[in-house]
Design a protein around this nucleic acid. Structure first.
Lengths: 220, 220
DNA sequence: GTTGACAGAGCGAACGTTCATTCTCATATA
DNA sequence: TATATGAGAATGAACGTTCGCTCTGTCAAC
């Protein structure tokens, strides 16, 4: 009836053999995909291993060959989730316009979370991070990674005299990231708010706090 | 050893008797307080009824006289939590300066969540709302309540010609609320960011989007 | 004022179920 | 044959909830 997963040994690619390592990787990914669905549906604690096995079309015995525990699956997902996000803010440095660079990165993140339907998972990871030490660590590391990328980016712009932030970076960064995270978690596009509008308002908010010095006529 | 709760029939107040209804109310509150602690510690699904009973210093049999199920406790807490928040935005209308009114309300909310240590519970409620219909409804109702309060407040200011928002209210409100929620959930004061600084940056962001017409010299 | 029936409150063992995990055994690959 | 992979029944612990019971305070009847 379902059979949604790519499982059959042949037919998927024309290649028949598939090395041991490749199969292991594919199976691991299959479990993580299934687990994500279950976690979104039922939460980390609410999803049972049986539910995940059913979703992955796999027996418990098989699953436990790839992950030693439920906890390990949660951690792997949290890690993958956060690693994905970190990338976005690294591309930011290529944009010479610091405000456009930051806003574009944030919006790209927002669109990515929206389109992949990851907002519930994101929320779940956040909640789990409040009590699960491993998940918290993982979140903090990726957060700090992003924060450092942004900090360097903004500091360079400050040094060039392009912006004159309303507060020291130690204050500004956490606030800007909290604002961004709020916008991402709310998943407004799914509620009918167009991305372009979100971007416009966000840009105004960020501009007001970064205060570009040489900007051609701020219109407010 | 602990005996933290107000349980003893006498001694708490000079009044000895304590009516049946009063005791019921007190016990209900005691259970909800204990449950909150457990939910923060272990999550809605991770906290067991036994854990809650232990925290409330009460047997399961006794607890089930007050709540028919674990689900019912969760709903009661979510409801109380959200009802508390709604109040803050109703007092907002008393402030004639619309930007100050909005920002002050948001900051008051933020401080309240920070001081009551409610951020983890808030996060938990959000996550549970993603899958529990009753909790979702409860969140949406209180959200809409707050949104309506703010909408009326801003619309009046628009009609008076005091502000000229950068976008229609249908767009502006969800964005502003998402920003506010992000700031509340991040609980920045607990990470060393002073409230006054958050307020300053938030005020700039909001001002940039509401665009007060008669404001004496915008400094950006 | 005493008595006795009654209702609400509370207790904690016990229930059936479900959980994460393990074990045993079969199959497929090399 | 040797080894990695898989299935699925089995396991014991923990879960939410229920049950039968006791205790305590209230109040009408006398």
């Amino acid at each position: 009836m379902d059979d949604t997963a790519t499982l059959e040994p042949a037919e998927v690619e024309t290649t028949g053999p598939v090395s041991r390592a490749d199969r292991r990787e594919a199976q691991t990914a299959r479990i993580m995909d299934a687990a994500k669905k279950c976690f979104v549906r039922s939460g980390f604690q609410g999803a049972s291993m049986n539910e995940i096995c059913r979703e992955a079309d796999m027996s418990p015995g098989a699953l436990y060959r790839y992950f030693p525990s439920k906890e390990a699956i949660i951690e792997a997902i949290a890690e993958a989730d956060q690693a994905e996000d970190a990338e976005i803010f690294e591309k930011m440095v290529d944009n010479p316009d610091v405000i456009d660079g930051f806003v574009s990165a944030a919006i790209e993140h927002l669109v990515h979370v929206h389109e992949s339907g990851a907002a519930p998972l994101f929320t779940e990871v956040r909640a789990e991070g409040m009590r699960n030490e491993a998940v918290r660590k993982c979140c903090e590391i990726s957060m700090e990674h992003a924060r450092n990328s942004i900090r360097n980016y903004l500091q360079a712009a400050i040094d060039r005299g392009e912006i004159n932030p309303r507060a020291p970076l130690d204050i500004l960064l956490p606030v800007m990231m909290a604002i961004g995270e709020g916008l991402v978690l709310a998943d407004l596009p799914s509620k009918g708010v167009p991305v372009e509008q979100i971007e416009k308002l966000m840009r105004a908010a960020i501009t007001a706090n970064l205060r570009p010095a040489n900007s051609p006529a701020n219109d407010f």
